[in-house]
Structure formats: C-alpha cells, structure tokens
C-alpha cells in the first residue's frame, strides 16, 4: 500500500489528459496562436523542478545544472506569457474600436 500516493499521481495525470482535451476541443482558429504560446508558457512549469535542484545539500554539479534549467525555464515562462499578452492585446484593441466612432 506504500504505492498509494504514487497511484494518486498517476490518477491526476490521467484526469489531466482528459481535462486538457475537454478544455481545448472548441477553440476558434483565430485564437490558435495565442493558445499555443499561452500553453507553451505553462509548460515552463518545469521551473518548479529546476528550483528544487538548487538545494544547497546537493553537489555543485547538480546545482549548476539546476541553475541552467532555471534560466531556460524562466525565459520560457516570462517570455511566453508576455508575448501572448502582446498578441491578445492586439485582438482586444479591435473590440474596443468596433464600438467607437469609425473614421
């Protein structure tokens, strides 16, 4: 029974797959790029794993590899969210212009 927590993790994994499919299945093609770059930013969640490698008890080698991982993951996260926001801001701008007076 020691394996129960591990099985829970596998359970979460399986459910998340179905959840992902349900969430995305009806996205208009207009939003495909932002969706992709937005979800790309989420994949930078691996930063959590990278941070945990920076434990001072670990060898210098493990820490430096972890450090590189943190840098790359942060670029992915910060860059990904900002670039998605920039794109979506453009989509937004037009919605505002629609209601306003048209020159």
């Amino acid at each position: 029974m020691e394996l129960a927590p591990l099985l829970l993790l596998l359970f979460a994994f399986t459910l998340a797959i179905f959840l992902g499919f349900e969430l995305i299945s009806k996205v208009p093609s207009q939003l495909h790029t932002p969706l992709m770059s937005g979800s790309n930013a989420i994949s930078g969640i691996t930063i959590v794993g990278a941070l945990l490698a920076l434990n001072t008890n670990e060898s210098a080698l493990a820490q430096w590899i972890g450090f590189a991982a943190v840098v790359f993951a942060t670029i992915n996260v910060v860059g990904g969210y900002l670039v998605t926001d920039r794109m979506l801001a453009m989509f937004k701008k037009k919605d505002g212009g629609k209601g306003g007076p048209k020159a």
Binding site: L9, L19, G20, L23, S39, I42, G49, L52
Partner: peptide, 22 residues
Amino acid sequence: FIILNNVLVVAGCLVGASGMIL
C-alpha cells in the same frame, strides 16, 4: 514524475493534451 510533484504533472499534462488537439 521524477520529483513526484502534482502541479508539474497536471500542468504539463494539460499542455500536452492541448498541443495534441491543435
């Protein structure tokens, strides 16, 4: 799954599934 971390598994999986749909 290496570091047995829920948020990594769930978030990674969401991205994996959504990318697959696209």
